[in-house]
């Protein structure tokens, strides 16, 4: 019993980040699920709320990545890339009103700063953000 108690105490102090952290693919899936929920909401505030759930999830996971002792930055960079692609959309949720013109400017900025050399479309990260912006700007 004492041994069991000791094991429980030991595991209580095992750092949370030793468990696998969410990947960029996980966040893409999460974004798609929240986007579906947001589409069903009628008010802008409730749509924003779904996006802010995503932001909360990003913030939590990136904090763990930053604390991780891992030398391989690739998984963190992939998640960060998606997070920073979303920044213009997260900033949108702080505005009470936004004109269609301002919305178009934000979308243009997302496409222009995307860096993708492909003329037929932006990167998957920016494409996901633009889906959200289309919904929030509607």
């Amino acid at each position: 019993m004492r041994l069991l108690g000791l094991i429980v105490i030991l595991f209580a102090f095992v750092p949370a980040h030793s468990a696998a952290l969410k990947s960029a693919a996980d966040f893409f899936a999460e974004s798609k699920a929240l986007h579906t929920k947001a589409r069903q909401e009628k008010s802008k505030t409730k749509k924003y709320a779904q996006l802010l759930e995503l932001k909360k999830s990003f913030d939590k996971e990136l904090k763990l990545y930053r604390q991780s002792p891992s030398q391989d930055l690739k998984p963190q960079l992939a998640v960060s890339r998606l997070y920073y692609a979303f920044e213009p959309a997260f900033e949108l949720t702080t505005k009470k009103e936004i004109s269609p013109k301002e919305c178009e400017r934000i979308k243009l900025s997302v496409k222009a700063t995307d860096g993708s050399g492909k003329e037929d479309g932006p990167s998957p990260e920016s494409a996901e953000v633009l889906r959200w912006l289309d919904l929030l700007c509607d």
Partner: peptide, 9 residues
């Protein structure tokens, strides 16, 4: 090619 999001990340 990875743009601004890459620089920030």
């Amino acid at each position: 090619p990875d743009g601004l999001k890459e620089a920030k990340s």
